[in-house]
């Protein structure tokens, strides 16, 4: 099965060109993702500049410990993903499966912690909408902050869920012996996606959790 994938499709000169095209396609997709998240980040920047005090106040409601732990969890999952790609490249099937599963486990830990955080926000009436409750002169703008908080972290979490689905397929394919040192492109492209999603979190964490702590 692996051998059939080692041969290039007829439109490509060789396996290397096929790899470069696949990889380029993934990078182009990631650029569209930057533009997608870029819209959210730009909106955040504009409103944060307009209401700095309210955004700092909203940020104080977030749990810096849970956010920090989640950042470390994601960085760990990027490490295991990179090691999974390495295992695929050197043809270690069991190592590949182990690291892919570890990556999924860390992704699930992240989502579980995120779920705990969301639950706290619901209990504290900090979810924008008719049940939102906040004291002080900035209450409507604090609600705006939480609008950004839930859209940005929610969209990020959705990307994680999709990534977990893709990883599950890769585990299954690895188990079936789909990959070899000659053909590991899908694992590598999954890795690119996973790392990208983690980069988004690298920016979300300071922007949402670390505002106005001083």
């Amino acid at each position: 099965m692996a051998d059939s994938h080692a041969l290039p499709r007829h439109q490509f000169d060789d396996v290397e060109q096929q790899y470069e095209v696949s990889s380029l396609g993934m990078w182009v997709f990631l650029v569209t993702e930057i533009m997608f998240f870029g819209g959210l980040f730009t909106g955040y920047a504009v409103y944060r500049a307009a209401y700095p005090a309210a955004f700092a106040e909203g940020s104080h409601h977030l749990d810096i410990l849970l956010g920090g732990v989640n950042t470390a969890v994601l960085i760990g999952s990027s490490l295991t993903m990179a090691l999974a790609v390495h295992s695929a490249q050197v043809g270690e099937r069991l190592g590949l499966m182990r690291f892919l599963l570890l990556t999924m486990l860390l992704g699930l830990v992240f989502l579980a912690i995120k779920g705990v955080e969301y639950a706290h926000k619901f209990e504290a009436h900090l979810v924008p909408g008719r049940y939102f409750v906040a004291e002080g002169p900035h209450a409507p703008q604090v609600q705006l902050f939480f609008g950004f908080y839930f859209s940005m972290t929610g969209m990020h979490a959705l990307h994680m869920v999709i990534g977990l689905g893709i990883l599950a397929v890769r585990v299954w394919q690895a188990w079936r012996g789909h990959f070899s040192p000659l053909y590991s492109t899908p694992v590598e492209l999954t890795g690119l996606y996973w790392h990208f999603v983690n980069i988004v979190w690298i920016f979300l964490f300071p922007l949402l959790y670390l505002l106005g702590r001083h």
Binding site: S78, L79, M81, A82, G191, L192, H195, F196, N198, I199, I202, F203
Partner: peptide
């Protein structure tokens, strides 16, 4: 941090 991920992990 993003550059480190991009340059080495990716």
């Amino acid at each position: 941090k993003a550059l480190l991920v991009l340059l080495f992990f990716m």
